[in-house]
Design a protein around this nucleic acid. Structure first.
Lengths: 141, 141
DNA sequence: CCTTGACTTAGAGCGCGCTCCAACCCCTAG
DNA sequence: CTAGGGGTTGGAGCGCGCTCTAAGTCAAGG
């Protein structure tokens, strides 16, 4: 597989693939007779995994650490596992943070909806306070 | 409150506060007699909210849109609400993506743990395959 | 009075992660 | 034979979000 096809299949641009190779994120690809990169399909698995690390916010320099360990072979399993565990902890913390922000966002959005409702009420019947007492409010539970 | 104190209280640097004012994320602060920014504590609420937008990955140009609407007053409530709803949808999608990645990470981490276990077993008793049949494996459910 | 230090401005610089360019090479189809 | 469309390289450029610098003003404390 040449770089153009790998680009299509992986979703990365050819520019990015070459860049990743330059910095060491992708292993130096074998070249064919005319010095063009010739990829094995197995590289896709690695690229996909890199994508997940990226999605979860891992900076390139850390992916690089992981890539180096990977290239160093089986003796680095423990180290890689520790690296991933630390990363996972950070991602979990980040997800929790996002969920907290989502609650705030919900509150804010509901707040705007309320304000609009009140403005409509005000336009329609300026002397009532807040909502008109409707049937749906009769039993607040 | 002067910029130095606001920096401490908000967690932003004074540089960043000035930068935010320059680009319009923070309203132009009133200046005291000697032309120094003099803040009201209420600005902290806005900065905190900006922080949540940032945490949730909103780019500055979108925060700017929101800030402009805010300055335009109550007539923009609906628009602001829509903006936040769209943002919320993106954040929710991102959280879902992260959670999917976390599952992959979990699998990967367990995989490394298994490999290590097998290597130990192999060192100890090279002729057995995989795990020694222990009590905890007797009923796989 | 003079120093200290926090403040002011416009603008330069930085780290990240690409993205693209220039100039060249090589293979294939018409 | 030649045009087109891929590939190669090193290095420049970009968009983002700050971060810092230079040169200056100002107010309070010793």
């Amino acid at each position: 597989m040449k770089i153009g096809e790998l680009a299509k299949r992986s979703g990365l641009s050819a520019y990015t693939i070459r860049y990743y190779e330059r910095i060491g994120l992708l292993p130096h690809a074998d070249r064919d007779a005319s010095k063009q990169r010739d990829y094995d399909a197995s590289i896709l698995v690695w690229i996909e995994f890199l994508g997940r690390l990226k999605t979860t916010g891992m900076p390139i320099r850390d992916m690089l650490r992981y890539a180096k360990l990977r290239e160093a072979g089986a003796v680095t399993h423990t180290e890689r596992r520790e690296l991933l565990k630390e990363h996972r902890a950070r991602v979990r913390a980040h997800v929790a943070e996002l969920q907290a922000c989502l609650l705030v966002l919900d509150t804010k959005i509901v707040g705007y909806a309320d304000l609009e409702q009140r403005m409509k009420d005000h336009d329609a019947e300026p002397h009532r306070r807040r909502k008109p007492a409707g049937a749906r409010d009769a039993r607040p539970l």
